[in-house]
Amino acid sequence: MLNFYALIPAAGYGSRMGDELPKQYLRLAGRPMISHTLRTLCSSPRISAVFVVLAPVDSEWVRYDWSEFSPKLVVLQCGGATRAESVLNGLNAARAVSPIGDNDWVLVHDAARPCLGSKQLNKLMDELADDEVGGLLAVPVADTLKRSDAQGRVERTEPRDKLWQAQTPQMFRYRLLLEALSMSGGAAMTDDAGAIEALGFHPKLVLSDARNLKVTYAQDLALAELILKNP
């Protein structure tokens, strides 16, 4: 039986939030934002371990009590300059401290998506467990899309047919994901699926919903808190 592992790259700063505190530690519903993600992943009986990839100089993590997530939680202070580098470094470091196999599944999830629910998580694992490639949670684009020119005016309207908005977790086998990120150089890819696509594979889109939002701007915190209070 193949195992499931989760990996959370949390070495970034989140400059668009306009806050001195790294985004993953901002208070959300009385707790650091990342703790909501950890609660969902660590409470899943199907996930063997949850790796959190921090910046080497992260001094904020030790200010909090994470004991409720033991013994599944594994902290790796090997984050890189980009998200892709952090995931790649984390994959290599995880191999050194766990029995993760080449064909085991790795679910990479953003620390800034604190509203992931167990229903979405299980749906992802159920639909991809026997898939040859893997895939990701995503939602079809619902809004009309406009492309702007250099002056900030509408250049044209983009067709939204067959367009999806990528979310996380993104779930791939350990060896394939390691190879994909190594080939990409760990710099240009904004998500893991993009690295897999660059190898010529076609990840599966697993229907999610808008509640699995990414907290990007300060105003997103209020919406995330509402979702957490009304799951």
Score class of each variant (00 low, 15 high):
residue 83 R to M: 15
residue 83 R to P: 07
residue 83 R to Q: 10
residue 85 E to A: 15
residue 85 E to K: 08
residue 86 S to Q: 06
residue 86 S to H: 01
residue 88 L to C: 11
residue 88 L to R: 12
residue 89 N to Q: 11
residue 89 N to T: 01
residue 89 N to Y: 09
residue 90 G to F: 08
residue 90 G to M: 10
residue 90 G to R: 02
residue 90 G to W: 11
residue 91 L to T: 03
residue 92 N to R: 10
residue 92 N to Y: 04
residue 92 N to F: 01
residue 92 N to T: 00
residue 93 A to H: 02
residue 93 A to M: 06
residue 94 A to Y: 02
residue 95 R to S: 11
residue 97 V to N: 07
residue 97 V to T: 09
residue 99 P to M: 03
residue 99 P to T: 03
residue 101 G to I: 00
residue 102 D to M: 01
residue 102 D to H: 04
residue 103 N to A: 14
residue 103 N to D: 15
residue 105 W to R: 05
residue 105 W to G: 11
residue 105 W to M: 10
residue 109 H to C: 03
residue 109 H to S: 09
residue 112 A to V: 00
residue 113 R to F: 04
residue 113 R to L: 08
residue 114 P to G: 06
residue 115 C to L: 10
residue 116 L to S: 11
residue 119 K to T: 09
residue 120 Q to Y: 02
residue 120 Q to N: 10
residue 120 Q to R: 11
residue 122 N to I: 08
residue 122 N to D: 14
residue 123 K to L: 09
residue 125 M to W: 00
residue 125 M to V: 00
residue 126 D to S: 14
residue 126 D to W: 13
residue 126 D to H: 12
residue 127 E to H: 00
residue 128 L to E: 10
residue 128 L to M: 07
residue 130 D to E: 06
residue 131 D to H: 12
residue 131 D to A: 12
residue 132 E to H: 08
residue 132 E to F: 03
residue 132 E to Q: 14
residue 132 E to V: 03
residue 133 V to K: 06
residue 133 V to R: 13
residue 134 G to L: 09
residue 134 G to W: 07
residue 134 G to M: 07
residue 134 G to N: 10
residue 134 G to E: 10
residue 136 L to A: 10
residue 136 L to Q: 13
residue 137 L to F: 05
residue 137 L to K: 04
residue 137 L to M: 11
residue 138 A to G: 15
residue 138 A to P: 06
residue 139 V to R: 13
residue 139 V to D: 01
residue 140 P to W: 03
residue 140 P to C: 12
residue 141 V to S: 07
residue 142 A to Y: 04
residue 144 T to M: 12
residue 144 T to W: 06
residue 144 T to N: 10
residue 145 L to S: 13
residue 145 L to T: 09
residue 146 K to L: 15
residue 147 R to T: 06
residue 148 S to Y: 13
residue 148 S to V: 03
residue 148 S to A: 15
residue 149 D to V: 02
residue 151 Q to G: 12
residue 151 Q to E: 06
residue 152 G to E: 05
residue 152 G to T: 00
residue 153 R to C: 02
residue 153 R to L: 13
residue 153 R to S: 07
residue 153 R to Y: 12
residue 154 V to M: 08
residue 155 E to C: 09
residue 155 E to N: 11
residue 156 R to E: 09
residue 156 R to Y: 03
residue 156 R to W: 02
residue 157 T to W: 14
residue 158 E to N: 08
residue 158 E to Q: 11
residue 158 E to L: 15
residue 159 P to F: 07
residue 160 R to Q: 08
residue 160 R to A: 14
residue 160 R to W: 01
residue 160 R to T: 08
residue 160 R to P: 01
residue 161 D to A: 14
residue 161 D to W: 04
residue 162 K to H: 14
residue 163 L to Y: 05
residue 163 L to W: 04
residue 165 Q to L: 14
residue 166 A to G: 14
residue 167 Q to W: 04
residue 168 T to H: 06
residue 168 T to C: 15
residue 172 F to M: 06
residue 172 F to E: 07
residue 172 F to G: 02
residue 172 F to N: 05
residue 173 R to I: 03
residue 173 R to W: 06
residue 174 Y to V: 00
residue 174 Y to T: 00
residue 175 R to T: 02
